[in-house]
Design a protein around this nucleic acid. Sequence first.
DNA 1: TTGACTCAACATCCTTTGCTACAA
DNA 2: TTGTAGGTTTCCATGTTGAGTCA
Length: 444
Amino acid sequence: MVRIRYFKGLILSDFSAPGLTWNDELKCYIGPAMKYRDVLYYFKRSNVEVNDEVLELLPFPIITEKIRLRRYQEEALGAWLRTKRGIIVIPTGGGKTVIALKAIALIKQSTLIVVPTIDLLQQWYEKVKDLLGVEAGRIGGGYDELKGITVITYDSAYTQIEKIGNKFAFVIFDEVHHLPSEGYSMIAQGSAAPYRLGLTATPERSDGRDQLYPSLVGPIVYRVAISDLAGKYLSDFTIKRIYVRLTEDEEKLYKHYRGILRNFLVNHNLELKSLEDFNRLVRLAIRDKEAREALLAWHEALKIAVNSKAKIEKLKELLKELKGEKIIIFTRNTSMAYEISKLFLIPAITYKTPKQERIEILEKFRSGKYSVIVTSSVLDEGIDVPDASIAIVLGGYGTPRQFIQRLGRILRKKENKSARLIEIISKGTSDYNLSRRRTQNATL
DNA sequence: TTGACTCAACATCCTTTGCTACAA
DNA sequence: TTGTAGGTTTCCATGTTGAGTCA
C-alpha cells in the first residue's frame, strides 16, 4: 500500500514513481502536484494499492444547465472529452466560454476558472450565473470567496495555489497563452486537478514557451481558424494595406537615428539579425554609453516610423470617406493615441484612462453616441469591447497574436456586414517589417 | 469605500533588400 | 593571428495589469 498526499503545491509519496524525486527533508518522494494524475495511473497500472489523500474537493453546486452548442463547439468539446486535458483554439467571438461551461456541467466536479483580468472575472461570474444558474465564488479584484465553482485571476491564483491546489478536480485556463510565463506556470504545476482545459484564440508565443502546454494543460486538441467561421458565425472580412512615405523632415531624422545605430553595429562588428542579437545589444547598453545611445536611437527611429505624419493625413482621408461607420483606431504608442484624440476630437482609451471613464466611453461607443474611438493596446484582449465594423491599425507589435486579436474586434456577426481591417504602413522603414512579421505568421 | 500611489510581473524588443513566383 | 569554449547579468524603454498600502 502506497500513501500519496498533497502538500503546498506538491504531491508526496512513500514510493518512487516517474516524475517524483527523493526529498531528504520531507523523507519521501515529491513532485509538482500536476503529476498527480500520472502518478495515480502509474501505481494503478503497476497493481499497487493506493491510499489516496491528495484531493480534498469542494462540493459541486446543484446547477441548471441550458446550453446549446454549435456544431464546431460540439466537435471541440468532443475532442477535449477524449482525455479531459488539452487546449481548444477558437477565434474571438467564436464562443469559447459556452464550451467550457458545458464541460463543467458534464464533469460535475469542483472547478477553478483562471482569468487574466478583473473584467474577465466579472464576465465569467455573470456567464456562470446565466447559463449554470449558480453564483460562482470570486477571488481577486477585492473578492475572496471560495466555492465549488470559483473564478480567480492569474495573479491571485499564483499567490494562493499552494493553499487551494487540491480543492478542485477541474481547472480551466482562460486566455491560456498567459500560462506558460515563468510565474504563472506555477499555477498549473501546483494544482492537482486531473482535468484541465485551456482556451485561447492565439496559442503561439513569441518566446517559444508555448512548448510547455502539453505538460501544463495538455496539447492543442481542437483548432478552428477565423476563415473557417467567417461568413457563417463571424463576419466576412477584408484586410487592406495602405503604404505611406515619411515626410522629408521625418526621413532625415529617421536616417539620422538609424545611422547612429548602424555605426555602432559596424564599429563593434555586430549584427541585428535575431532576437538574441538584439538582447545582446540591450545587455551591452547597461554599461556601454555608446551602446545605450545606439539603442535609444533605435527607439527614436521606430517611433518616427510608426507615428508618421503621413499616417495621420491618410487617417484624415479615411475618416471622411468612412463617415457613419463604427471604427476603432489602434496605435502602438499612447502619445499617438492622444495626438489623434486631440486632432480629430475622438475619445481615447489607454492604460492611463481611469476605469470609470473607460466604461463610459465604451458605453457611448456601444450605444452609437460615439462612432469612432482611438486606443493603444489596452483593448486588444480581456475587455468586452462593443463591436465595430472597421479597424484602422496605425501601429502595433510584430506579433501575429495582436494582429489576430485586433481583427477579432470587428468580426462579431451582423446581418449584411462585412468587416474591414485597414493597416497604414510607413514604407521603407522598420514599420514595414513589423507589419510583415505580424501578418505573415498569422493563421487566419 | 474610494482613490492615489507603488510595486512586481508580463510582453515586446531583430532582419530595411535582391530575387522569384504569382495574382490582379 | 585566428578560432573556440564557457559561463553570466533578466534587460535599454514603453505599455499594461493586479495587488497591496495608506490616507
